[in-house]
Computed example of a mutant assay.
Amino acid sequence: MIIPQNAKQIEVIGSTVPFFEDEDTYYFDSSLTAPPEPMVNAMVGLQLLDDKHKLVMINHKSPMGLFPKIKESFDYEVVELPNDTVKVVFIKKTNTSVNLSNVDTSCSGSGCMH
């Protein structure tokens, strides 16, 4: 499992999967969910980030529709995992404010995370 054993489960309003936190990272696994759940969970997770924390998303594929929507406020790295999933690590860019309220989380066209 990608989520460390010492990570504690936390309540995240609006999420559809469990979230976990350790010293400097939030984690969630949306690899078993269907669209639009991965996008919804990514968006609520990104709102948790500050200059000290990063967010790790485990998903069945890269959320390509999400990246253009958040690129101004977040850096991200995609790592292919051996079990046909991906790990996406999101880091808030320093000195940026985060306003995700205008990001469309619906699943339509190329914005879907199938």
Results as ranks from 00 to 15, higher is better:
Leu49Gly: 00
Gln5Tyr: 14
Glu77Pro: 04
Asn99Arg: 08
Asp51Glu: 13
Glu77Ile: 04
Met57Glu: 04
Gly65Trp: 11
Asp24Thr: 06
Val88Asn: 06
Met1Val: 10
Cys112Leu: 10
Val56Pro: 00
Ser110Cys: 07
Lys87Pro: 03
Met57His: 01
Thr16Gly: 06
Thr16Gln: 14
Glu80Val: 09
Gly45Asn: 05
Gly111Ile: 15
Thr94Cys: 03
Ser97Thr: 15
Ile2Glu: 08
Ser108Arg: 15
Glu21Cys: 09
Met43Glu: 02
Ile70Lys: 01
Ala7Glu: 13
Met113Thr: 11
Met43Pro: 04
Thr105Asp: 08
His53Val: 02
Pro68Ile: 10
Ile13His: 10
Ile91Tyr: 01
Leu81Tyr: 13
Val98Arg: 07
Pro35Met: 05
Lys54Met: 09
Val88Gln: 01
Asp50Met: 09
Pro68His: 10
Gly65Lys: 11
Tyr76Trp: 14
Glu72Pro: 10
Gln5Pro: 10
Gly14Met: 07
Ile10Ser: 12
Asn102Ser: 13
Val89Glu: 05
Ile2Trp: 10
Pro63Asn: 11
Lys61Val: 11
Lys54Val: 08
Ser106Pro: 13
Tyr76Cys: 09
Thr85Lys: 14
Leu49Gln: 02
Pro35Thr: 07
Val56Asp: 02
Thr33His: 08
Ser31Asn: 14
His53Asp: 09
Val12Asn: 13
His53Gly: 07
Met39Val: 03
Ser101Thr: 12
Val44Thr: 00
Asn59Val: 15
Met57Arg: 01
Pro82Lys: 15
Ile3Ser: 04
